[in-house]
Computed example of a mutant assay.
Amino acid sequence: MRTQVAIVGGGPAGLLLSHLLHRRGIASVVLEGRDRAYVERRQRAGMLEQGTTDVLRESGAGERLDREGLVHHGLELRFGGAGHRIPLTDLTGRTVTVYAQTEIVKDLVALRLADGGDVRFEAEVLEIDASAPSVTYRQDGRTHTLECDYVAGCDGFHGVSRPTVPGLRTFSREYPFAWLGILADVPPSTHELIYANHERGFALHSLRSPKVSRLYLQVPPDEDLGAWPDTRIWDELAARLATGDGWELRQGPVTDRSITPMRSFVAEPMRHDRLFLAGDAAHIVPPTGAKGLNLAVADVTVLARALTERYASGSETLLDGYSATCLRRAWRAEHFSYWMTTLLHVDPAADPFALRLQRSHLDYVASSEAAATTLAENYVGLPFD
């Protein structure tokens, strides 16, 4: 078997890359270790930057996004019992959109299959050869080898692509807290996201749809999910999100819950010979800045453009610059995500001096247009170009 680009991983990065290449006449095969049902129901965040929505729309993958996505023009920082709105659009001219990663994956799977795309589920990748490019995988009890011109490693933090790259430099940071996240069948109590700093820890009120809420609590990284019955979750959310103006948190049935560790991670370079890393295979950000999915989209947009140039003209200039181009954006997102995380979370080891510095910083962001603009332009996303 042979194709032009073998794509390891059938999440949003791999599927979008395959879709973008198809629209440019470049053949690809997507190899995904999980079954289709698992991939389409895997819960992930879904705050899309302006650039991400632009890419999806321009590629023809934005029909349901435009119909069901919730466009936001601001967000709220909440601390000291009061809310402080950051007017994202007024400060930047750009917006963000709430549309779950789960739905993006469903849209892209449907598009690829409708176009006759080759997406192979339950295909366990065993080995990647980056020099004489090929991918060996097991499917239906049989081992196959897929030869190709290039390999795109879009298989996430725990995938097989990154360990294939020799001599990687890695940079990482573990945070002394995690997020307990829930989905609840209740209309959101807010029209824009609320990022709350409270002496008992961070809380986030997000939303999934007009009828479904997504909420998070800061918890210790080794927290037992079983120690959090619904009543305790709602009580803690209400306490951390409380204001002095009578705002009330709506409560409803919890349909999903999980604990997510917080880490920052970058691997350099993002290319080895004919293998290119993209998305979580190359970098992880704490979710506070809402950058993970958007970085993955930026990576594969750059890679699709570079491969298009290669097949159209024979030039590898853009391919040669792929790693440096993507890492510039990744490190900016890493810094912003770290900044948002340390601005809003309570470090259990922080002394009173550090806590007062944090509060001073929050006051500054809420009162200074310059500081608010820095937050806003990073949150809505820097231009892809």
Rank of each mutant, 00 (worst) to 15 (best):
V119Y: 03
P221T: 01
G153T: 07
A372H: 00
Y99Q: 09
A333F: 01
H144P: 00
Y137L: 04
P352A: 15
E58G: 03
S131M: 10
L15A: 05
S315L: 08
L343V: 04
A6M: 02
D347G: 12
E334T: 15
A242Q: 14
Q218Y: 09
L204T: 02
Q43D: 12
D280E: 15
A110H: 03
A366F: 02
E377N: 11
D280N: 14
A37D: 15
R142L: 13
F202H: 15
W179E: 08
G181I: 11
S323D: 13
L207W: 01
R162W: 03
Y137V: 03
V254Y: 02
F353Y: 14
T243P: 10
A290L: 05
L357V: 15
Q101G: 15
H84K: 13
A290T: 02
G244S: 15
S313A: 14
E147G: 09
L65A: 08
P188A: 10
Q218R: 06
G80I: 12
F121G: 04
H283M: 10
D149G: 13
L91C: 06
H84Q: 14
L75K: 09
S367K: 05
V125N: 07
D115C: 00
H283K: 05
C148R: 03
R257E: 06
D363R: 08
V135P: 09
I284R: 02
Q139W: 03
K211H: 13
T102I: 07
L21R: 02
L48N: 09
R85L: 09
T341S: 15
H361Y: 11
E68C: 07
S360K: 04
R250M: 09
T288C: 08
A304Q: 04
D129E: 12
S213T: 15
S315E: 05
A13D: 00
L180K: 09
V186I: 12
V160Q: 09
G33V: 05
P229S: 13
V71W: 00
T231C: 07
D149K: 05
G159I: 01
F157S: 14
L15V: 06
A298S: 13
Q251P: 01
H335D: 12
I194F: 05
H205C: 12
Y38G: 03
H198S: 14
S323E: 06
L20A: 08
L48Q: 11
D115T: 01
A312I: 03
L327C: 11
A372M: 00
P210K: 05
N197A: 12
V55N: 07
F384L: 13
F265A: 09
L215F: 00
T325W: 02
S134L: 02
A306E: 08
E248D: 14
R271K: 12
S323K: 10
F353P: 00
R332F: 06
G11W: 03
